[in-house]
Write a protein that binds this DNA or RNA. Structure first.
Length: 217
DNA sequence: GCCCAGGTGTTTC
DNA sequence: GAAACACATGGG
């Protein structure tokens, strides 16, 4: 069923062109900034970071934390996120940047990322898929809501249980996982809103309890 | 004014 | 482990 959901979403919405930004470092920064935050606000923060000359690993790692916080202000939690960005940049540099980290297999790389302050499961998996092109399924709040609504989840499953179940149901194709998470966010943004984009959700007939609203409402 | 957004760390039991 | 809480801006 995970495969059918993907096919429906892809057929309806098409390729999403994720990740927004330029290259692996942008992905890592964006992944931290978007924690519990709307992308609109992340985009503002990224612009301010660029203007401040902070969108580079060493510049970000060495900057005064106050300056970093001021630039990230629009994305919320800015004091927290400034520290997290520095921790991530320092680890990134210590491991030899993208090239150095890319030598690690997916399991090792996930463990390294999870060891960085401020990088939890979802952020680590965002980075694995969108910065390192690994076939990993990212589980976010939309994923849980949509899959629960489709009765593909009970509600109590752990993050890694969900991730592994979805990965096991699909070919280990990095591009597929890239699109899958992006499409789920796309659907979430369309229907998990006060004013749903479409009254008849693409997944409606997959919902066992399909009522008058989409998979999430 | 209220709720939510592409979560995570800390504290406490 | 699991629950409760802090972290903060911007939009509907």
């Amino acid at each position: 069923m995970f495969r059918e959901v993907y096919r429906r979403l892809y057929r309806h919405y098409g390729p999403q062109g994720w990740w927004p930004g330029n290259g692996p470092f942008d992905v890592m920064v964006g992944a931290v900034l978007t924690q519990n935050t709307a992308w609109r606000n992340v985009d503002r923060a990224l612009g301010r970071l660029r203007n401040a000359g902070l969108m580079a690993p060493a510049a970000m790692a060495d900057a005064a934390v106050d300056r970093l916080a001021e630039a990230t202000r629009p994305s919320g939690y800015f004091n927290v996120k400034a520290r997290r960005l520095q921790a991530l940049c320092r680890a990134y540099l210590a491991w030899g940047g993208h090239q150095g980290m890319a030598r690690l297999d997916t399991g090792d790389l996930r463990r390294v990322l999870l060891g960085v302050h401020g990088v939890g499961r979802e952020t680590a998996d965002d980075i694995l898929v969108y910065a390192f092109d690994r076939p990993v399924f990212v589980v976010d709040a939309y994923t849980r809501r949509i899959f629960e609504r489709l009765a593909l989840l009970d509600g109590g499953e752990h993050y890694d249980t969900i991730r592994r179940n979805v990965e096991a149901a699909l070919d280990p194709d990095p591009q597929l996982f890239n699109e899958y998470h992006a499409l789920i966010v796309r659907l979430g943004n369309a229907v998990c809103r006060p004013r749903p984009e479409c009254g008849a959700c693409v997944l409606r007939d997959l919902c066992p309890t399909a009522g008058r609203s989409g998979p999430d409402s």
